[in-house]
Amino acid sequence: MLVVIDDAAATPATASAVLRAHRQCGNLKRLLSVATHDAPTRRLLEDDAGSGGPRLVVHPRIDVAIDTAYIAAA
């Protein structure tokens, strides 16, 4: 699954919701990737993702995130 956070939605509340979704995806053994141009949001996600379960992959570029998600799903 890939979540894209645009600049208008790049808030701590959005990061918190994505981290909750990441934990739920981990419980289901599903990968979750995030793409956002906003550096503070990327840092929040990377710092708070935790070490349990699959790693949260955070991309600064949407095109790279889509390509990576496509390769992982193949």
Rank of each mutant, 00 (worst) to 15 (best):
I62P: 01
T11Q: 11
L28Y: 08
I5L: 03
A74L: 12
P12V: 13
R55N: 00
T14G: 01
C25N: 14
R61Y: 12
V64C: 04
E46N: 10
R55L: 11
N27W: 09
A21N: 03
D47M: 14
P54N: 10
R43E: 09
V34Y: 07
L45T: 03
A69Q: 00
R43C: 03
R23I: 13
I62L: 15
D67Q: 10
D67P: 01
A39I: 10
V57A: 01
Q24W: 10
D48F: 04
V64P: 06
V3A: 14
K29D: 15
V64F: 02
D6Y: 04
S16T: 15
L28D: 15
I62R: 08
I62H: 05
V57P: 01
H22I: 06
V64I: 09
S33K: 14
L28F: 14
T68P: 01
L56T: 08
V3D: 10
N27E: 08
A49M: 12
A39Q: 05
G52T: 02
T11W: 05
V57E: 05
T14M: 07
I62F: 04
V3I: 15
V4I: 15
R30P: 00
V18A: 03
S16G: 08
D48E: 09
Y70A: 12
D7K: 08
P40V: 13
G50L: 13
L28H: 12
A49S: 15
P60A: 09
R55M: 09
H22R: 13
R20I: 03
A35P: 05
P40H: 15
A69C: 12
D47F: 13
D38W: 10
R42N: 06
T41G: 04
D38T: 11
H59Q: 09
G52F: 00
A73L: 13
K29Q: 15
A9Y: 00
G53T: 13
A21K: 00
C25K: 09
R43Q: 07
P12A: 10
T11G: 07
H59F: 15
D47A: 14
A74S: 13
A9L: 10
Q24D: 14
A39N: 03
A65C: 03
V58H: 03
P12F: 07
V18W: 11
A13V: 10
A13S: 11
A39C: 05
V18L: 04
R30T: 02
V18E: 00
I62S: 06
V34T: 07
L44M: 13
D47W: 07
A15F: 05
P40L: 05
R23E: 14
S51E: 04
R43A: 06
L32W: 04
L19T: 09
R61V: 11
L28W: 12
V18K: 02
V34I: 08
A72L: 10
A74G: 15
I66S: 02
L31E: 00
C25V: 05
T14Y: 00
N27L: 09
A21V: 05
R23G: 15
A15N: 04
R43F: 07
K29R: 05
R55Y: 06
A8Q: 06
I66D: 03
L45V: 07
T68Q: 03
V3G: 06
R23T: 14
L19N: 02
R42D: 08
A49R: 12
R61L: 14
R55T: 05
